[in-house]
Design a protein around this nucleic acid. Structure first.
Lengths: 199, 199, 199, 199
DNA sequence: CATGAATGAGGGTTCATTCAT
DNA sequence: AATGAATGAACCCTCATTCAT
């Protein structure tokens, strides 16, 4: 019936949406959310401003879409890791190394995310709530690893690892090659390697 | 009719500048840097926009001035702490507790500062460089504490403490009363309490 | 596989055009002409924007088509009334009551039409001229009623009735149930009932 | 204290606000509200767009301000008329003639107002409510005239006169010199001249 | 006949900054 | 030292319309 099939329309749409998201991610990461204009994004994506607004209700929704994409990528990473046949220590090592790799491969973007999470009036409440829930779920999974290792308070251990990792990350993001990230990584993992399960 | 003395002018000037900085700090903290307008600051400070521009070349310089104030406050705190008659462990405890107290007393403001430090194009290069130097100096002083305690690699220990502290802070700033900051504080300090100086 | 007959195509076409006009009428009436978008009309009519532009050269022509429909409905009503076997007073009563009934049955729509007739740059000149002619023709028919009744100046009487009716309508449209439209109707008709044909 | 006195600032401000309102009134009247852009208004007023927004929160508030100005002019006219030493018939004559003169002197503007009162989503609720109240107050004053003349139902007579007047006005506004407004005026007043106070 | 992706000119609005006094 | 009126560039967003298929 249709001159273009549904699938053709969908392909067109998906392509444009992906181009827009990709351009926005790049620019938000490089310049920051507030300093990036919708015009810049449209131009970088090779589409008109109007088309951008056909697919995203505004600059903020575009940001939300990007963040959700990344959240889901992170969860898939954690899924794979938790279902793989690994010892607890190997899992932790994979998490630490995976996190470092992610941040190293796209530091601008992680600056953006961390910064946004601390800003007021930028992320809308619905998204903030979602992120909180997802974070809690991830924490619970991490805690099972420490429980398996025999830690007395796995939840506290989870929070401690996350604090150290996130702190390390913001220092790395601020200083980049001046920060001894590999040495820090080794030092963090050392503690878990030395841990002896109490009788 | 008698002209005001130079001292009187200086007093007026200092009072206005302080009012401006105070108003800006308050508003930046509550609303974020980008969502705070110069007009709002001037109105809150009880001065005209024109006067604000007499004292500060713009919104950004005002931000810089505020940040430098805080940096100096932090350094004074560290000064007092390092010259007081304390054991190394007491010093570390004071640093940890002092940091937590500061963040708890004005979380909005620390959200702002942390967020800004991760944003690009907001803080100018000169200020960024200054902050880096000051941070390095503070690190060196912290390292002396760990050296005194007998740690094998005091610099690494400093970075580790800072990472854990900063990570904890951003989690606290994001979750506030949902974050068990006291328990984390105890756990962090525990490690230093248990440390045995190698023979 | 057999191609559709011309009649089938025409039926499809008429159905789509009617759906579009109906949707447009509804939306223009509810939201006003300016606040209704072509996309909304197409969606409400269940057709694509492209198809809408196949049938109507744009938003304005669609409006014109709707207005012409109503003009023709009004003329048919007048036709029936003038050819029916009625006394002059019955005719006037029917006109007054018919007008009130029409406006009461769809006040949003009549708000729209009245408002449009007063706006500049919305209705194009050709349509405005047409409306003027049709109005003049209707006036002439109305005047015959008053002439039949023996009024000295039937044209003036026509203008007077129309002014009173239209004024009453805009007050009704503005105030709706707060306006005593039935009492006004009675009062208007009373004057014609009391009129005595001069010898 | 101030480099410009308060009065000087106020004069500057009032001059600009008046220029803006005057330009807006002119353009709204000529082109209609929706077809007039803020840029056009600013240019016609000889000020920047920014200044316009210093004084009016937007296009709509500017419209509201203009409407309120006119409402108050109308009320002043009615005030003068009601306090002057006139017979009831002279008062009515003055109201009719005054209304016609107002509409004749600025037809575009009255087209605008009438059209707006019938449009949805244009005038905000607060203004609509205010206009309703003012209209009711004006009606009450008009009714006192008819009461004084001895009409059995002065309120109804008021509504009737207003309907006829407003209807006549929209016909005049639509047809201008083609509409026999003086003849209509005479015919309307004739009815009141002939009225005999019942015993 | 029918689709909806794509356009782009132009709209209303904001706000850091300047400047005459 | 101090004011606030005035600027204008740039922003986000809308929507009637076109067009390849």
């Amino acid at each position: 019936m249709s001159p273009r099939s549904k699938a053709q329309f969908a392909a067109l749409r998906d392509k444009s949406m992906a181009a827009i998201k990709s351009a926005a991610l790049e620019l938000f990461g490089q310049q920051g959310y507030h300093f990036t204009t919708v015009s810049q994004i449209a131009k970088a994506a090779g589409v008109s401003k109007g088309l951008l607004y056909n697919y995203y209700s505004g600059k903020e929704e575009l940001l939300n879409a990007i963040i959700m994409d990344v959240v889901e990528m992170g969860e898939q990473f954690l899924d794979q890791l938790m279902t793989a046949a690994l010892t607890p220590l190997e899992r932790i090592t994979a998490i630490v190394d995976g996190s470092i790799a992610m941040v190293q491969s796209d530091p601008h973007y992680w600056k953006l995310l961390t910064s946004l999470s601390l800003q007021i009036n930028v992320l809308d409440e619905a998204l903030t709530a979602t992120l909180k829930n997802r974070q809690a779920a991830a924490n619970a999974r991490l805690a099972t690893i420490f429980r398996e290792m025999g830690y007395a308070d796995p939840e506290r251990e989870t929070l401690h690892l996350e604090a150290t990792m996130d702190g390390m990350m913001i220092h790395y993001l601020t200083q980049l090659e001046d920060y001894p990230i590999q040495a820090m990584r080794d030092y963090i993992l050392q503690q878990y390697q030395r841990f002896q399960k109490p009788e």
